[in-house]
Nucleic acid binder design. Structure first.
Length: 460
DNA sequence: TCTGGGGTCCTAGACCTT
DNA sequence: TCTGAAGGTCTAGGACCC
């Protein structure tokens, strides 16, 4: 999908169409998740600190992400992809690889192009959003094609043209080459994919190590045999929080770690998993990041066991100077639990009072009492008499709401007290009106753009 | 300027076992 | 019995991706 989050917000809010929209964390340490194409004109891009984005585009609309809304749209698009082929490999909410040949949806360049065009039309019809499609004989090339197709386009890389197309491109085009590897190669005088080929495989391995060197050299020759994998099993589950202000109080750090451990276990259990290795992550005031891990005798999904392990790991970390981020994760996953791990926990720590560990919600001592409502910018609300709208901003005891819906004209703005009893949070409205004949089909929503290419669809 | 959150994969050293 | 090589596991960190 093209600038997915921002596009979904523009589809949902008529007053933002054609305007610069930036979606991301709005706190003092937030970063940009997605910027609309109108915002990109000002130099705003993903992963940029929000403060910098505000300086570049002070008049843009700044919204917090609505992941539930985006996920609903993503589900609609993924369903369209799965209708094309059983081999669909989602990369994120808004991207996926599809093996068109495996699904019989395409067998040569022309049939692939047709399938891609039909898919784009279907995405538009079902979600109301635009997506781009890249078609090629491998995942790497399909990804490059889809980047070239953005926004709202379709690009097919004809078999036999791959090497010529790749040669002049920057090494940063290749998957796995980020800022660090790009710099490393640049210092060795390698900036284009042609120059990787000229340097030779041995030199690449010398520069980047075995796995990366061999892999990158093969990619530079347009050799990519990675299959489209439909079912990816989860390898780890983690949660982390960055704090608006560094935490110095050691007691508070400990409480936050406990809270994160509980949240992590809820996610773990939600996925029906348990894990053996507990990981604590600490980012200190100077942005240096430490991880500490401990492997248990067997997998657990017991919050008490994870809390205790995380607390032990924290004991080995110096937090003097303050921490800006804390995280707790579990890896070494299994889909079963080893019950006698209770014994492990009890054995090492003489009998802590046994709480009902399965209780989904426990008091969080470190947290302030929740406000009545958190009126987050961009989120939907309903007013008893004025109807559906969204939060444009809030502060000083006031919340400003724009009253409009996906299929209305740009709406009027009104300001209320934050505790106005007529105002309440609401669910997002579908982006595409639900027709009676759609019953049973996907309900309306905006769609992400996807890039997909069957490994055999074009080249096969 | 000042850097999110949730992941995956790779490397390398320490340590243990065979 | 001692030694060394080889391989596996654990741990920590770095890079990358969306």
């Amino acid at each position: 999908m093209d600038a997915f989050f921002a596009q979904a917000e523009q589809a949902s809010k008529p007053s933002l169409r054609g305007k610069a929209v930036v979606v991301g964390g709005l706190g003092p340490r937030g970063v940009v998740a997605t910027a609309s194409y109108e915002a990109r004109v000002f130099g705003v891009h993903s992963a940029m600190p929000m403060a910098q984005a505000r300086r570049l585009a002070p008049n843009a609309a700044y919204l917090t992400p609505r992941f539930t809304f985006y996920r609903a749209i993503s589900d609609q698009v993924m369903a369209l992809l799965r209708a094309l082929s059983p081999l669909v490999e989602p990369l994120s909410l808004d991207e996926a690889f599809v093996d068109l040949e495996a699904g019989g949806a395409a067998w040569d360049a022309e049939s692939a192009r047709l399938a891609g065009a039909r898919l784009r039309a279907d995405i538009r019809a079902v979600t109301g959003l635009t997506g781009s499609v890249g078609l090629a004989a491998s995942k790497m090339l399909a990804k490059i094609a889809s980047e070239q197709a953005k926004p709202n386009g379709l690009v097919l890389i004809e078999p036999g043209t791959e090497r010529a197309l790749l040669g002049p491109l920057s090494v940063r085009t290749l998957p796995g080459v980020g800022p660090a590897t790009g710099d490393h190669l640049r210092r060795a005088g390698i900036t284009t994919i042609d120059e990787i080929v000229e340097a030779g495989e041995d030199e690449l391995v010398r520069l980047l190590g075995k796995a990366h060197g061999h892999g990158l050299y093969a990619m530079a020759l347009a050799r990519d045999e990675r299959p489209v994998v439909a079912e990816r099993e989860t390898k780890s589950v983690s949660v982390e929080d960055t704090y608006d202000v560094d935490i110095h109080d050691r007691l508070r750090v400990g409480l936050e770690v406990q809270r994160l451990a509980d949240r992590c276990v809820r996610r773990l259990r939600g996925a029906g998993l348990s894990g053996r290795t507990i990981v604590l992550k600490v980012r200190r005031y100077d942005f240096s990041t430490l991880t500490r891990s401990e492997t248990l005798r067997g997998p657990t999904d017991d919050p008490a066991v994870v809390r205790e392990a995380a607390a032990r790991l924290l004991d080995s970390v110096d937090t003097t100077g303050g921490v800006r981020l804390l995280g707790v994760g579990v890896s070494g996953l299994a889909d079963y639990t080893q019950e006698d791990l209770f014994a492990q926990a009890a054995g090492e720590h003489a009998e802590a009072p046994e709480e009902e560990t399965a209780a989904p919600e426990q008091p969080r001592p470190a947290e302030p009492a929740p406000a009545e409502h958190s009126w987050r910018p961009g989120h939907d609300v309903r007013h008893a008499s004025l109807g559906h709208g969204w939060v444009q901003g809030s502060g000083l005891g006031r919340v400003t709401v724009r009253f409009e819906t996906p299929d209305s004209e740009p709406g009027r703005v009104r300001t209320f007290r934050v505790d106005d009893p007529d105002l309440e949070p609401a669910d997002p409205l579908p982006l595409v009106p639900v027709r009676p004949s759609d019953a049973g089909g996907p309900d309306g929503g905006a769609g992400p753009e996807q890039k997909g290419v069957g490994s055999g669809a074009v080249g096969g």
